[in-house]
Design a binder for these strands. Structure first.
Length: 546
RNA sequence: GGGCGCGUAGCUCAGCAUGGACAGAGCGGCAGCCUCCUAAGCUGUAGGUCGGGGGUUCAAAUCCCCUCGCGCCCGCCA
């Protein structure tokens, strides 16, 4: 928080010069640099000199600006002792609430939503991890967040999976894998198209026997998927089945509204002509046999969301880009808000793209098992009970997976790499967890101390850097919120851990004495709190020991 | 063919929204650090035509145009 206020103070101070947020930047040369003079004058150095004068004459009015230096046309601002003091005070009094914002919107975030025809694979994982991390970030900004998994129980793929299960039965293995095996097999062996059609029709009509069969298959796959998600510290508040909108008659009402649009046309099927909006291909709402298509049910779902939420966020793979534009356009034509889409590019395997249908994928379960096993080997000779070792290996493994995914910007296409997934070093979550564990370890050895500090005791660059990092938590949180880019939080986690490790190297805590010792211990406590909270935002478990 | 995204060190990535101070990290390479709070750590060093070309600008990795490479989309699939 204090760092955001520091920035606000600079803006207020230079308001008369028409300096805006975009003129400020983080810099190696300062805590915050102002580059406005370039933009505002043909003689930037002269202007910067004037600004400098003004700042120097008034800077005593501000709390968090400590000093300013001019470097040519740049103004370099430095934080005050007061900011350092206030940062520690807030972290230590607010605890894990430190850094929270109060934006407070009601938002729904839909993520994962993988078809219940098989297990989650490493492509789905990108959706899941981005979505869950964003949900956590939004909550921290004070939003009321509902996490949805939209269950596609009506599609062709599901009908085919059901046929597969009927033909081959379910193996007695984890449900999602069992369904996948039947689905892969029927795709390989072949099937009658008319059988698939018939199943879709009967399911949409609500044929009791078929509904119960579909439900069983979908539930079986979903149970397995939920188990995997839980292991990754991911829960959904609500699983919304597509068929809910059909059964409740909601979709019917939506269809009636759609029919009133001038873009809505009918011949063999019902479709939307969006050519005047630059979308050449018609958007079909129904099939020739009268059954609904995904987009129709999805429109219904989004109208329902409109009624309940102020903000709708969907996490979608790059293959949904055009689709999501079409959906948004239709919603707008109907007079509704459209969702905000967080699009991520594909994860592929070194040998090419993944496919559930062809059985060409690395499942999330396989990945988790292997990473946890590697973590387990690494701690095998540590002095810990087996129980704790197991817990640590799981937390490290899951953290490494989540972090490996979330650290990369969503728009970057990636190729899955085992070596990277199994790396537990510098730019990974174990590095952050390790900093947390080191802080814990120091605090565990403290028997008596007073929770008090004097910022005058913090004069080593490593200490100053660490406190400044702590002060920037909500600054980065706000950036994540605005840009919906969770990789920013991963980057902050790394910076913070890095700053703590430098502090750990340079500053003896336990051997120091008196108020110097109290101050340092207080700083370690504050670091532990913020490191822990950042890990929570990333869905990674902080560990007391590892 | 059209649309969207990506291309930055040997490898994996920041930085691009809102153009500014020498383009930053990690891994890998090389050279070092455990009588000291956990070495999953730390220090130093080498390594760059920011895919290529043009343009705008006092200033371009960042903006515009062209071009090459890769991925995705263009279904009465989801």
């Amino acid at each position: 928080m204090p760092f955001r206020e520091f920035k606000t103070e600079i803006l207020n101070l230079l308001e008369n010069f028409e300096v805006f947020e975009k003129d400020l930047e983080l810099s190696d040369h300062a805590d915050m640099a102002c580059k406005a003079a370039f933009r505002l004058s043909k003689h930037p150095v002269e202007l910067a000199k004037k600004m400098e004068e003004r700042v120097k004459s008034r800077s005593s009015e501000f709390r968090f600006i400590g000093s300013v230096e001019r470097a040519g046309p740049y103004l370099n601002f430095f934080v005050s002792q007061k900011l350092l003091d206030e940062t520690l005070r807030r972290v230590l009094t607010e605890g894990n609430r430190y850094g929270a914002l109060e934006i407070g919107k009601k938002v729904v975030i839909e993520h994962t939503s993988a078809n219940p025809d098989g297990p989650l694979h490493i492509g789905h994982l990108r959706n899941t991890v981005i979505g869950d991390t964003l949900a956590r970030i939004l909550e921290k900004t004070g939003c009321k967040v509902e996490r949805h998994y939209y269950v596609n129980d009506m599609g062709r793929q599901i009908a085919l999976a059901v046929l597969g299960v009927e033909r081959y039965g379910l193996e007695s293995i984890k449900g999602d894998h069992a369904v996948a095996n039947a689905y892969i097999r029927i795709n390989r062996d072949g099937y009658e198209e008319s059988d698939v059609e018939k199943y879709m029709e009967r399911y949409e009509e609500g044929d009791e026997e078929i509904v119960s069969t579909f439900n069983k298959v979908v539930e079986t796959a979903l149970e397995g998927i939920k188990e995997t998600l839980k292991r990754l510290n991911i829960i959904h508040d609500r699983f919304v089945w597509e068929s809910e909108f059909v059964r409740s008659g909601y979709m019917r009402k939506v269809l009636e509204k759609l029919l009133k649009l001038k873009e809505c046309k009918k011949n063999e099927t019902l479709y939307l002509d969006l050519s005047e909006y630059g979308i050449k291909k018609e958007v079909h709402l129904t099939r020739k046999n009268g059954t609904s298509l995904y987009v129709l049910r999805d429109i219904a779902y989004h109208i329902w969301k409109n009624e309940k939420f102020e903000r709708m966020i969907n996490v979608l793979g790059a293959d949904h880009k055009l689709y999501s534009r079409q959906l948004s356009l239709v919603l707008e034509l109907m007079g509704y808000n459209s969702p905000e889409n967080v699009i991520f590019e594909f994860v592929s395997l070194p040998e090419g793209s993944m496919s559930t249908r062809k059985g060409k994928f690395i499942s999330a379960d396989e990945l988790i098992d292997k990473v946890v096993e590697t973590a387990s080997d690494l701690i095998s000779d540590k002095d810990m009970e087996d129980e704790e070792k197991k817990k640590v290996a799981e937390a490290v493994g899951v953290g490494a997976i989540r972090f490996d995914i979330v650290r990369v910007s969503p728009e970057k296409p990636t190729v899955f790499d085992w070596k990277q997934a199994l790396d537990f070093e510098r730019q990974t979550s174990p590095y952050v967890q390790y900093a947390y564990a080191r802080a814990s370890s120091i605090l565990k050895k403290v028997e008596d101390f007073d929770l008090r500090w004097d910022v005058a005791h913090f004069n080593h660059p490593s200490e100053l850097r660490l406190i400044k990092e702590l002060s920037m938590f909500s600054f980065h949180l706000e950036r994540c919120y605005r840009l919906l880019k969770p990789n920013i939080m991963a980057g902050y986690a790394l910076n913070l851990a890095n700053a703590f490790n430098a502090f750990y190297r340079d500053i003896p805590v336990l051997q120091s004495e008196g108020n110097l010792r109290n101050s340092r211990i207080s700083l370690v406590m504050a670091s532990k709190i913020v490191l822990g909270e950042v890990l929570n935002l990333l869905g990674i478990e902080p560990l007391e020991r590892m």
